[in-house]
Design a protein around this nucleic acid. Structure first.
Lengths: 149, 149
DNA sequence: TCCATCTTCACTATATCAATCGACATTGTA
DNA sequence: TACAATGTCGATTGATATAGTGAAGATGGA
């Protein structure tokens, strides 16, 4: 599954918010700086994430964004599907253009794409942001160790 | 993984050639007609498939295209990867733009995309065109049966 | 009153993809 | 040998999606 920049930035932003231990809101430019996302673009994206209910925002000088749910209850899959729509299924799509006419191969390819899409969602519906953070921290400390040695 | 039309047409064409029992070459317009592919576009695609070594061609009035290998030795995966290039891996890509600078999250997302890409190639590297044909035929005869009842 | 988010609309590149055109090369057959 | 069918190849067009910017004003908290 191809993942657009917009979507990658969304994931990065949520990852960054997941790193925030206390309930302190993060400002756009903080997130943008930390994850190298164009700030203006991030603004648009965070807005989407707010409407989706993934983050909450607070205005004013102490404002910013916070996760709307704990990171362990937020999967990568729901975010990607919200941003990009459902995983692409070519056959059903193509069949519409042919107004219902079916071709030899439709069944086989239908099944193939279904298998692929199941495999993909199997991965990312079972990955939470808490897990991402945990993995990152483990990996980071082990690579720091390597430097020390 | 997003699959372009070009790639779908390529798969359709190879599927159609896999259906051909004897070694008789099929003409472009036959394939195009059977699988509803724009003939002119198919011409370009079959050319690519020839260079990749997936099909052979014969010129002249009795010419056309044939599979270069038996359908049971041809996987969906190799075709897709040839047409679209390797499965998309955002992190490595992005790291180049940052000239080597790493971000907090790189490890975690790297692993995530890797899992996804493994899941996907696990499906299509293990699917041959012979299997697609077999599945299609089984499904087709069972649905014909349903009509009869 | 300052700061930062929210809302909205528009606008420009850029890239990719789908599809087509036109000219040329090759082969089988009459 | 000449014709007709077919494959080969490079260039070009048009559509669509994506990435990212710009500007203006409204809202609300410290």
């Amino acid at each position: 599954m191809r993942v657009s920049k917009r979507c990658q930035y969304a994931l990065r932003a949520l990852f960054e918010l997941s790193l925030q231990p206390d309930g302190r809101p993060m400002k756009i430019h903080q997130i943008a700086g930390a994850q190298k996302v164009p700030p203006r673009f991030l603004e648009v994206i965070l807005n989407e994430l707010k409407h989706a209910g993934f983050v909450d925002s607070r205005r004013g000088s102490e404002g910013g964004y916070v996760l709307a749910r704990p990171a362990k209850d937020l999967t990568v899959g729901e975010v990607i599907e919200y941003i990009q729509g459902p995983i692409y299924t070519p056959v059903a799509d193509a069949a519409k253009h042919r107004n219902g006419e079916s071709l030899l191969g439709d069944y086989a390819f239908q099944q193939l794409w279904r298998k692929v899409s199941d495999a993909v969602s199997g991965v990312w519906d079972n990955t939470t942001f808490a897990e991402l953070v945990e993995y990152e921290m483990a990996k980071k400390s082990s690579s720091a160790l390597n430097y020390a040695i």
